[in-house]
Amino acid sequence: MKSILIAMLVAMTLPFGLATPACAGSGDVVVENAWSRASIGTSRPGAAYMDIRNAGDEDVTLTGLRTDLAGMPEFHLTSTNNQGVSSMSPVGEIAIAPGETVALAPGGMHAMLMQLRRPMEEGGTFPLTLLFSDGGEVTVEVPIRGIAARGPDD
Protein backbone atom coordinates (compact mmCIF):
# COMPACT_ATOMS: atom_id res chain seq x y z
CA MET A 1 0.00 0.00 0.00
CA LYS A 2 2.71 2.36 1.06
CA SER A 3 4.72 1.65 -2.08
CA ILE A 4 1.66 2.32 -4.24
CA LEU A 5 1.15 5.64 -2.46
CA ILE A 6 4.75 6.61 -3.02
CA ALA A 7 4.53 5.51 -6.63
CA MET A 8 1.39 7.60 -7.09
CA LEU A 9 3.09 10.62 -5.56
CA VAL A 10 6.07 10.10 -7.82
CA ALA A 11 3.75 9.76 -10.82
CA MET A 12 1.98 12.98 -9.86
CA THR A 13 5.18 14.96 -9.40
CA LEU A 14 6.93 13.66 -12.51
CA PRO A 15 5.12 15.88 -15.01
CA PHE A 16 6.22 18.94 -13.02
CA GLY A 17 9.80 19.18 -14.10
CA LEU A 18 11.50 15.93 -13.16
CA ALA A 19 11.17 14.47 -16.62
CA THR A 20 13.59 15.94 -19.11
CA PRO A 21 12.16 16.98 -22.47
CA ALA A 22 14.29 14.37 -24.25
CA CYS A 23 12.43 11.56 -22.55
CA ALA A 24 9.03 13.03 -21.97
CA GLY A 25 7.40 9.62 -22.53
CA SER A 26 9.55 7.33 -20.41
CA GLY A 27 9.76 10.02 -17.75
CA ASP A 28 6.16 9.19 -16.92
CA VAL A 29 6.75 5.49 -16.40
CA VAL A 30 6.08 4.13 -12.93
CA VAL A 31 7.38 0.77 -11.76
CA GLU A 32 5.58 -0.96 -8.91
CA ASN A 33 5.63 -4.28 -7.04
CA ALA A 34 9.08 -5.29 -8.24
CA TRP A 35 10.39 -8.57 -6.84
CA SER A 36 12.59 -11.51 -7.72
CA ARG A 37 13.49 -14.92 -6.38
CA ALA A 38 16.76 -15.85 -4.76
CA SER A 39 19.11 -17.99 -6.86
CA ILE A 40 21.19 -21.03 -5.97
CA GLY A 41 24.67 -19.85 -6.91
CA THR A 42 25.17 -18.21 -10.29
CA SER A 43 24.83 -21.01 -12.82
CA ARG A 44 21.04 -20.85 -13.15
CA PRO A 45 19.25 -17.82 -14.62
CA GLY A 46 17.14 -15.61 -12.38
CA ALA A 47 13.87 -13.82 -13.08
CA ALA A 48 12.40 -10.53 -11.90
CA TYR A 49 8.80 -9.37 -11.94
CA MET A 50 7.09 -5.96 -11.71
CA ASP A 51 4.26 -3.80 -12.98
CA ILE A 52 5.36 -1.14 -15.48
CA ARG A 53 2.79 1.63 -15.86
CA ASN A 54 2.76 4.40 -18.42
CA ALA A 55 1.31 7.27 -16.37
CA GLY A 56 1.92 9.82 -19.13
CA ASP A 57 -0.04 10.65 -22.26
CA GLU A 58 2.45 9.45 -24.87
CA ASP A 59 3.25 5.95 -26.07
CA VAL A 60 6.44 4.52 -24.62
CA THR A 61 8.45 1.56 -25.85
CA LEU A 62 10.65 -0.60 -23.67
CA THR A 63 13.68 -1.72 -25.62
CA GLY A 64 15.83 -3.51 -23.08
CA LEU A 65 17.32 -3.95 -19.66
CA ARG A 66 20.59 -3.29 -17.89
CA THR A 67 21.89 -4.49 -14.55
CA ASP A 68 25.28 -5.17 -13.05
CA LEU A 69 23.81 -8.37 -11.61
CA ALA A 70 23.59 -10.23 -14.91
CA GLY A 71 25.63 -10.33 -18.09
CA MET A 72 22.60 -10.88 -20.26
CA PRO A 73 19.31 -9.47 -19.00
CA GLU A 74 16.39 -9.79 -21.42
CA PHE A 75 12.61 -9.68 -21.45
CA HIS A 76 11.26 -13.20 -21.93
CA LEU A 77 7.77 -14.52 -22.35
CA THR A 78 6.60 -17.86 -21.01
CA SER A 79 3.67 -19.29 -22.89
CA THR A 80 1.75 -22.48 -22.25
CA ASN A 81 -0.11 -24.03 -25.17
CA ASN A 82 -3.45 -25.84 -25.01
CA GLN A 83 -1.64 -29.11 -24.46
CA GLY A 84 -0.03 -27.79 -21.30
CA VAL A 85 3.45 -27.44 -22.78
CA SER A 86 5.35 -24.37 -21.59
CA SER A 87 8.04 -22.64 -23.59
CA MET A 88 10.01 -19.46 -23.15
CA SER A 89 11.21 -17.00 -25.76
CA PRO A 90 12.83 -13.54 -25.83
CA VAL A 91 10.50 -10.60 -26.30
CA GLY A 92 11.67 -7.74 -28.50
CA GLU A 93 10.29 -4.31 -27.78
CA ILE A 94 7.34 -3.80 -25.45
CA ALA A 95 5.01 -0.91 -26.29
CA ILE A 96 3.00 0.59 -23.46
CA ALA A 97 0.11 2.89 -24.38
CA PRO A 98 -0.78 5.86 -22.15
CA GLY A 99 -2.56 4.68 -19.02
CA GLU A 100 -1.62 1.04 -19.68
CA THR A 101 0.30 -1.27 -17.35
CA VAL A 102 2.47 -4.13 -18.51
CA ALA A 103 2.71 -6.81 -15.84
CA LEU A 104 5.82 -8.93 -15.62
CA ALA A 105 4.43 -11.85 -13.63
CA PRO A 106 5.10 -15.59 -13.14
CA GLY A 107 3.95 -17.57 -16.13
CA GLY A 108 3.94 -14.54 -18.44
CA MET A 109 6.58 -11.96 -19.16
CA HIS A 110 9.60 -11.65 -16.93
CA ALA A 111 12.97 -9.98 -16.81
CA MET A 112 15.21 -12.97 -17.43
CA LEU A 113 18.59 -12.53 -15.77
CA MET A 114 21.10 -14.71 -17.58
CA GLN A 115 24.78 -15.02 -16.72
CA LEU A 116 24.45 -13.96 -13.08
CA ARG A 117 27.61 -12.28 -11.82
CA ARG A 118 26.78 -12.93 -8.18
CA PRO A 119 24.17 -15.04 -6.36
CA MET A 120 20.80 -13.45 -5.72
CA GLU A 121 20.52 -13.59 -1.96
CA GLU A 122 17.21 -13.53 -0.13
CA GLY A 123 16.67 -10.22 1.67
CA GLY A 124 18.95 -8.30 -0.68
CA THR A 125 18.15 -6.03 -3.59
CA PHE A 126 19.69 -5.23 -6.95
CA PRO A 127 19.31 -2.29 -9.36
CA LEU A 128 17.56 -2.98 -12.65
CA THR A 129 17.41 -0.30 -15.34
CA LEU A 130 14.64 -0.29 -17.93
CA LEU A 131 15.70 1.22 -21.26
CA PHE A 132 13.24 3.08 -23.47
CA SER A 133 13.23 3.96 -27.17
CA ASP A 134 13.22 7.71 -26.40
CA GLY A 135 16.58 7.34 -24.68
CA GLY A 136 15.06 7.49 -21.21
CA GLU A 137 15.90 5.08 -18.43
CA VAL A 138 14.08 4.08 -15.28
CA THR A 139 16.04 2.32 -12.56
CA VAL A 140 14.33 0.28 -9.85
CA GLU A 141 15.79 -1.45 -6.83
CA VAL A 142 14.39 -4.98 -7.00
CA PRO A 143 13.92 -6.83 -3.68
CA ILE A 144 15.03 -10.47 -3.63
CA ARG A 145 12.54 -12.84 -1.97
CA GLY A 146 12.97 -16.53 -1.15
CA ILE A 147 13.34 -19.16 -3.89
CA ALA A 148 9.79 -20.36 -3.18
CA ALA A 149 8.30 -16.83 -3.18
CA ARG A 150 5.03 -16.47 -5.06
CA GLY A 151 4.75 -12.68 -5.12
CA PRO A 152 6.22 -9.35 -3.98
CA ASP A 153 4.94 -9.78 -0.42
CA ASP A 154 6.27 -13.30 0.23
Binding site: R37, I40, S43, R44, P45, G46, A47, H76, T78, T80, S86, M88, P106, G107, H110, M112, L113, I147, A148, A149, R150
Partner: peptide
Amino acid sequence: FTYCPDVCPTTLADISD
Protein backbone atom coordinates in the same frame (compact mmCIF):
# COMPACT_ATOMS: atom_id res chain seq x y z
CA PHE B 1 14.12 -28.59 -14.62
CA THR B 2 16.06 -26.61 -12.06
CA TYR B 3 17.60 -24.18 -14.59
CA CYS B 4 14.11 -22.92 -15.32
CA PRO B 5 13.71 -19.43 -13.87
CA ASP B 6 9.96 -18.93 -14.19
CA VAL B 7 7.59 -21.86 -14.64
CA CYS B 8 9.31 -24.42 -12.41
CA PRO B 9 9.86 -22.32 -9.27
CA THR B 10 6.31 -21.05 -9.73
CA THR B 11 4.96 -24.60 -9.95
CA LEU B 12 7.05 -25.76 -6.99
CA ALA B 13 5.96 -22.73 -4.95
CA ASP B 14 2.31 -23.29 -5.94
CA ILE B 15 2.52 -26.96 -4.94
CA SER B 16 4.20 -26.01 -1.66
CA ASP B 17 1.28 -23.66 -1.06
